[in-house]
Simulated assay, not measured.
Amino acid sequence: MANECSICEKELNEADDLVTTDCDHTFHRQCAQERLDTKNRTDCRACGQDSALGDALARLKIVSEGECSICERLWTLEDDLVTTDCNHTFHYACAQERLNKTNKVDCRSCHQESALGNALALKNLTKKGECSICELEWNWKDDVVTTICKHTFHRHCAQERLDERNKADCRSCGKESALRDALSRNTRTTNIKKSIERKPITIEVDQIVRFHFCSIKLIVNLPKGKNSLLNF
């Protein structure tokens, strides 16, 4: 291990909180995190290897397993995960669904403002793949659905496959009903404005009826010559 952190140029000790990159350069974790947060630099400060420092910091945030506080189910390193700056980890699908449905970007565990939104934004910058229905690429900007077997498709491709061919299984692995279930979970509701036609009320009144216990004024459309103000 090198004896100096090339970010702060101070000595490294084994008792310090350290982070080591894939290119085998070691830094104070605090220095590395500050460099990432303030300068958005993820490359190795010693040799310049692209993303090396960012990847090393990300690995430190993830342990072997934990609970996603959105769905309250266990996650493992085999799952598609997203980790916030406040060091809380969630299933990616849960975090994205929470954002889509409730527009909440805070951390679900500690409520740090914008933490989950920022983590998703960083994750989505590199998230892409191939839709095995149309065999075209999808990326984070597209409207996609992900099955429980972790295969992702364009939403319109999945819906068309279900509607036109009645195929509900996953197109990639064949898991039964996976595509239908994914579409059902990810259904987005839209606000529909309904116009209600209201016709004026026409009431013919020959006389004014008065009740001693209340007085209510009612304006109505009446034929010519009739009273237009009723007192009840």
Rank of each mutant, 00 (worst) to 15 (best):
R98K: 09
S195T: 15
N227V: 13
G225D: 12
C44P: 03
C23P: 01
C157W: 04
H111M: 14
A182F: 01
L125C: 15
A15P: 00
E204F: 12
V209W: 09
Q33R: 04
R198Q: 12
L230V: 09
Q112Y: 11
S51E: 15
V144N: 06
P200Q: 06
C44Q: 00
E65A: 13
N13F: 08
L136P: 00
S228W: 03
V19E: 01
V82I: 07
R161K: 09
L74H: 09
R188W: 08
R73I: 06
L36K: 03
Q30R: 08
N231A: 10
R29I: 02
D37W: 06
L125I: 14
S184R: 14
S51A: 13
E137W: 04
N40A: 12
T42N: 09
D50L: 12
I148G: 14
D181I: 08
N166L: 10
V82F: 02
H28E: 01
E135Y: 14
T146I: 03
D169A: 10
D50T: 12
E204L: 15
C71V: 05
A93W: 08
H151C: 03
R41I: 02
Y92K: 11
T84C: 04
C23H: 03
L57N: 02
Q159Y: 02
N3A: 10
C170K: 05
N221I: 12
K128Y: 12
G174K: 03
K199T: 09
D85I: 08
H111I: 11
V144H: 01
E197Y: 14
L60T: 02
A58E: 13
E72D: 07
A32S: 07
D22F: 01
D206T: 08
D163T: 09
A15F: 10
